[in-house]
Design a protein around this nucleic acid. Sequence first.
DNA 1: CGGAATCCATGTGGATACTG
DNA 2: CAGTATCCACATGGATTCCG
Lengths: 132, 132
Amino acid sequence: MVTTSTDTAPADDALPGNPYQAGCPTRRILDRIGDRWTVLVIGILGDGEARFSEVRRRVDGISQKMLTQTLRGLERDGLVRRTVRAEVPVRVDYALTEAGRTLQEPLRALEAWSIAHLGEVAASQAAYDGTV
Amino acid sequence: MVTTSTDTAPADDALPGNPYQAGCPTRRILDRIGDRWTVLVIGILGDGEARFSEVRRRVDGISQKMLTQTLRGLERDGLVRRTVRAEVPVRVDYALTEAGRTLQEPLRALEAWSIAHLGEVAASQAAYDGTV
DNA sequence: CGGAATCCATGTGGATACTG
DNA sequence: CAGTATCCACATGGATTCCG
């Protein structure tokens, strides 16, 4: 995406540590996290290697297309390793790489925060909606 | 969004600790994080109270509409406090609430991971794209 | 200044059908 | 089983205009 204002200034990419600049690599990774399925898929694979269909079954609501897309993205990023076993029918296993495993920790922290603040957030929303 | 399969089973909402169930509250919070601007806005407000226009200026590429929407969402969630000062022209300040501040830590962990693995991820992507 | 409201382009993602 | 390919609906979000 990137704003038109920075499209003309590619030099912004030279600021990897500042996610507030559009086009910054950090921002791109943040976007990845937020693609709705990535976090959940990593969570599943964190339990150990799993087949395509197993991940699909365990991530409620994900479509086959989105799972494929998510796994491809993670593989491309080097966070997931894809192993095709020449059996009939085909068997494909997915597992986190070392890098993928390191991502689990910050993700778990986020999940822990979510669970810890669920009630608080829900209450705030209810109050807000009641006011407005 | 939620899948049609679970739309008919509202009981799934009774599983707050399992984000793999569609409609689960934890998942909704994860969705929030991933809305592209929320994380950045929290990052800015983490530096201290800021006016609407200041946040707008510091988050490169955000539109006025998206900033308003993001701030409203955060306010509704109880993560940001909105203060309107009766001046002319109007002055509105935004600041993180206590809950909002607690969210900073997991977010910072994520940002730290991103920065630490930027090179690794970029290299993996380049290799992947070269192969395919 | 800080928004609200509207219009519209496009990206995301689901459903479906077909393949190795 | 594990995809690929297509079509299409809808949500996201930018640009613009107007208001208190």
